[in-house]
Design a protein around this nucleic acid. Sequence first.
DNA 1: CTGAAAGCGCTTACAG
DNA 2: CTGAAAGCGCTTACAG
Lengths: 337, 337
Amino acid sequence: MPTIKDVATKAGVSIKTVSRVINDEPGVADSTRQRVNDVIRQLEYVPNLSAQRLKRGRSELFALLLPRVESPYAIKLFSYILREAQKRDYSVLTLAEVNSTPITPAQIEHVVKTHRVDGLIVAPPGADNVVLMNFLKSNHIPYVTINPNLLNEHPFSVESTDEIGANEATRYLISLEHKRIAHIACMKTERFSHERRKGYIRALEDAAPAASAPLIVQGDNSIESGHNATLELLNLPDPPTAIFAGNDEMAVGVILAASHLGLSVPGDLSVIGFDDTPISHQIFPHLTTIAQPIPEIARVSVENLLELIDGKQDVPEFVQIPTRLVLRGSCGVPIQN
Amino acid sequence: MPTIKDVATKAGVSIKTVSRVINDEPGVADSTRQRVNDVIRQLEYVPNLSAQRLKRGRSELFALLLPRVESPYAIKLFSYILREAQKRDYSVLTLAEVNSTPITPAQIEHVVKTHRVDGLIVAPPGADNVVLMNFLKSNHIPYVTINPNLLNEHPFSVESTDEIGANEATRYLISLEHKRIAHIACMKTERFSHERRKGYIRALEDAAPAASAPLIVQGDNSIESGHNATLELLNLPDPPTAIFAGNDEMAVGVILAASHLGLSVPGDLSVIGFDDTPISHQIFPHLTTIAQPIPEIARVSVENLLELIDGKQDVPEFVQIPTRLVLRGSCGVPIQN
DNA sequence: CTGAAAGCGCTTACAG
DNA sequence: CTGAAAGCGCTTACAG
């Protein structure tokens, strides 16, 4: 493997000049820069990361705390964060729960110290762990949280627009001329549940009297709870013609319940989910849903963290990123109006 | 952050002695070793990885090539490999397809050179890419493959016992006194499909005449194909009372089809899957299935790769790791016998 | 615009 | 059993 010395010798310059070229520093004549770059290409020279890191006194490594990696949301977030980090020559140390063995703050503290991570990106449930957050704050370790449940607790966070997304989902059902639209709510422990519920209620209130009053059943995010909530809803004297499920799993439960009752989706019942997880295009009909802006969340989180690590002062404290309505096959015009 | 020098000074020894203690090298008096360890604990000293790597001329980094990270199999494999690597102070550079954008051999070549990975762990489809494999071989880069489709092409591979697992699944159905047992086969492009089919056929043949002849429908691994294959099977003049699906997704399709036909699982039809993916306990009834030994596959792959990197000569070339029958709620005694 | 020197924190031979 | 010296491949001040 060629080193910076080999490049310097062959280009007839000092290693410092090569270093300037590598790091895009100013103060190198264009002709010199070009010559050095040619040699770099010719020798297929790549700087030794370990040497750079040692000298810079930085690990160029950040930790990523994820919930159960089995969750599709976590996985997608993970892959995009990985990709964004790689673009910027950063490594990612992923700490994720496997088989619901939770990671303790003490473990994280140990990893942070051992690997000298420059910072952290923290997704729930880590972002809601007060002990952990206090450790990070008191040690002045830069970190960015993603969709935290605890608000105003974190200096820097990146969020998706759950309220607006839910509002858009509901307005879409209204635009199809559904009047009676139910909502199956996610677990109350998650802040996004409230946001989604609020967006749903706001849409109905704005559309009144074209849409009837809110009709909400509490779910627990699982397929089964979506299934049971649907049976309950469809047994009402005046059943809904459309259901906005708080997440895709419960929306799948809606489809399964409809199928058990001999109802067709979207013929007899329209369903819309939230999250755009893989299950949304594994089920039949494919699920119309609200997509989380995961690629953008990943990009902004990484960018902001690296700026914090660089000591920049103008890092935005609170970023909201818009969700997106994804039209598939689970919504239609109501049969009875 | 304390350095090796601080420890040496405080313990009254040379830095070389501290280095010996850190690396568990022989030739240090027990009393010295103890004293140094005490100081290490006291100062909370942790060796600087970048310095170690620079000096050792190793990145202590291996690359992991995964298929679509959206697949639950890939995710689980990923988390366990991560964990095993961490135990051994190795970092993992994960290269995974996102949204089915395939990784090209050229990209991998670039990453291998840029990051100077010490080796690779390659899961399909990378393991079946001849161009990539040739690049690794001709550059003498150590690598281990997991469940490759191409056999005898790889110096070192780790596999699960698909044939034996399928055989166990089928024998379990036979033990419940099912006579007519069908199989929905996975895509023919995957070698494991043939292994699972073989295991199924062997079980029926060994049990004859208690079990009838093989009855196989080709699927394509999707829920939908499992669904369609089931409709086909249950329309036969002498329909099966049990179905062994080649994977969990198709087994879910079996359950959905049964539900559409008004049949209960396992009352009217028993179903067994393969892989033990998350979907197997999201569906009702929960799926009896064959679990892939992912934790062990991860451990052995990492162990073998690190031994190859260390230049050890006795690394096993071909490791098979047993699958496990997981009993849940989708199998029962046949209603008509 | 360019470079010589020093040193980041370790480990690798080598000597005793 | 222990240590002094050299150096891995870079970057950080500093000088010109």
